[in-house]
């Protein structure tokens, strides 16, 4: 404990961090709440001296807005699909990586590469891979020419090219591409965490299991997974939070229209909705942000509750 006459020194040393936090974290949070509860709040108007009434109109507006439910649905769907998928894949890859000794370092590096690459840039590469040229202009003499490597592979194996992301593509195709991209993007971090967890498990548990004649599948389900459960819980919870904030991955593939050509905003998400409202309707954006916060909060609480029961620390 610091003696009281030196307390001011402690505050002095803490002050840069505290000031930064106050200005850039605490005040924006308070301000967001304030704006959300002022009817039709608009910052231009506020600068002009307009007084806004207190009320929950912004929230009503958000919920009434047809596109909002669309955004919420997209966000939920992507999260529910990608979090379990990426977690299971990351777990399997981490277990495999942990099992092999030669080349482990190199493979670890390769698996980690997506993490240090710009997600918009990767999105553009993915867009090129899933691209399809020609089919969109389906005139009578139009020859369908595929350009993306994915469709090349499909055709090589005798399949029919799929319109993944271009104009006229189906919602299911769009979501498939998004799931592949988001899962791929989410893997490195999860693998890193899970591999670290695996390497910290005492090898003697595995020796004990071997002496006890345990099958490999049972070792995995009864020993590896439970002992890894704190890391799994962490990965799932951060995965859900990240999933609800999905935005840049869709921009990466579909551009800021948030949808295939001719159907803009089809894949818009919660964060996208907030951004869209931000330039003109700050009140509505704030209300949407609070709603998003509420959803993440509830989901995280459920996650924590479940993991407390299932996790061994």
């Amino acid at each position: 404990m610091v003696e009281s006459k030196h307390k001011w020194k402690a505050w002095l040393y803490l002050s840069p961090a505290i000031i930064l936090l106050l200005v850039f974290t605490v005040w924006p949070i308070i301000n967001t709440v304030r704006m959300a509860f002022l009817e039709n709040y608009n910052s231009m108007g506020a600068v002009g001296g307009k007084i806004y009434a207190f009320g929950i109109g912004n929230f009503k507006q958000v919920l009434d807005y047809k596109l909002f439910l669309n955004c919420l649905g997209n966000t939920m769907l992507l999260t529910v699909l990608t979090v379990p998928l990426s977690t299971i894949l990351a777990l399997l890859i981490a277990v495999c990586l942990n099992a092999i000794k030669p080349l482990q370092r190199i493979l670890q590096t390769i698996f980690f590469l997506p993490y240090v690459t710009n997600s918009i840039a990767i999105g553009m590469v993915f867009a090129a891979m899933f691209n399809m040229v020609g089919s969109a202009f389906g005139g009578e003499n139009e020859i369908v020419v595929t350009a993306g490597i994915i469709n090349n592979v499909i055709e090589f194996f005798g399949g029919e090219a799929v319109n993944w992301i271009n104009a006229g593509s189906t919602y299911a195709a769009n979501i498939t591409v998004m799931v592949v991209y988001i899962v791929w993007n989410a893997l490195p971090f999860k693998i890193l965490i899970l591999l670290g967890g695996l390497q910290s498990i005492n090898k003697q548990y595995y020796d004990a299991a071997r002496v006890d004649g345990t099958r490999r599948s049972r070792v995995f389900t009864k020993i590896t997974v439970p002992l890894l459960s704190p890391m799994l819980a962490y990965v799932v919870i951060t995965g859900f939070i990240g999933g609800f904030k999905e935005y840049s991955s869709i921009v990466g593939i579909f551009g800021e229209h948030m949808g295939p050509a001719g159907d803009a905003k089809r894949l818009n998400t919660m964060v996208g909705f907030i951004y869209d409202s931000l330039s003109t309707q700050q009140g509505r954006a704030s209300a949407a942000a609070l709603i998003l916060f509420g959803i993440i909060f509830v989901v995280t609480m459920i996650n924590l509750y479940v993991s407390k029961k299932k996790t061994h620390y």
Partner: peptide, 19 residues
């Protein structure tokens, strides 16, 4: 292999499954 020998082994730090 160890799985098929049917021995009982007590480890120095017991290696009880903590979960």
């Amino acid at each position: 292999s160890a799985e098929n020998r049917g021995v009982g082994l007590v480890f120095q730090n017991y290696a009880l499954y903590p979960h």
